[in-house]
């Protein structure tokens, strides 16, 4: 069966109530713009969304927050996202804040078949509450793998097997999330022929990708344009 889908609407239509959804991107850098826009139009709710920032500056995944589709958010940083901070303090969205390295590693662990791991990050803080601890060279806490039903990610280039190439710092969490989800939906700026991305330069092998489509109308927003 071909992995190539026509567009975002076709690729995301089976995302359902109570699904766990991972979304790539650091702030607004590398976010799957087309998939987010399509999901915001679906009649679904009670999603658990796993993403570093859950959108920022009123954009990106904030569209899902505004539609009240998110019941729980798992993320590392909410500074710069007043919509989430507001819903968090009002307790209309449950927020699990995870240290960013633990967040990345929990997602990586899911993709790698690692069920849990010990880390010193968060020891002696609120993050350690209710978690098993164990002393190695230093005291550590036990953190578990983070899986998802769907991952939505964006790459600069991809081919019909789902082999991907990311541009500059737009890679961030995306390849990890692709490995941790049952169904990974990729949008690309350039859908290229097999072989166009040299095999040595493939950042994520297509094995981890179930759906891929050519995205359209990218905004590629810049949060802070700092120049000389």
């Amino acid at each position: 069966m071909s992995k190539v889908y026509k567009n975002a609407t076709e690729a995301t239509q089976d995302i359902h109530d109570k699904a766990t959804l991972m979304s790539g991107g650091f702030g607004l850098c590398g976010i799957p713009e087309n998939s987010i826009e399509a999901i915001a139009k679906l009649p679904i709710k009670n999603l658990t969304v796993i993403s570093n920032n859950i959108g920022n500056s009123g954009r990106g995944l904030v569209a899902l927050l505004k539609e009240k589709m998110i019941a729980k958010a798992i993320c590392s940083y909410v500074g710069g996202n007043p919509d989430l901070e507001e819903q968090m303090l009002a307790k209309s969205v449950e927020v699990e804040l995870v240290p960013q390295g633990t967040f990345s590693e929990r997602i990586r662990a899911a993709g790698m078949g690692v069920r849990a791991f010990y880390t010193p990050t968060g020891y002696g803080t609120l993050v350690a509450e209710g978690k098993e601890t164990k002393n190695f060279d230093v005291p550590c806490i036990l953190e578990s793998a983070l899986h998802a039903d769907f991952a939505i990610i964006k790459a600069q280039k991809g081919d019909r097997y789902g082999n991907l190439w990311f541009k500059e710092t737009a890679r961030n969490f995306s390849p990890l999330m692709a490995m941790a989800a049952k169904t990974t939906i990729v949008e690309v700026e350039e859908l290229v022929e097999l072989g166009d991305i040299p095999a040595e330069d493939i950042h994520l092998p297509g094995l981890f990708v179930q759906r891929i489509y050519q995205g359209v109308h990218y905004k590629n927003d810049i949060e802070f344009r700092v120049t000389q």
């Binding site: 850098c29 710069g80 700092v226 120049t227 000389q228």
Partner: peptide, 21 residues
Amino acid sequence: SGKPKEEEVSPTLINAGKQTI
């Protein structure tokens, strides 16, 4: 490295503060 010139700005090249670099 430092701040980009106007023509060097890339939306996919940022630091953790989401500033162009």
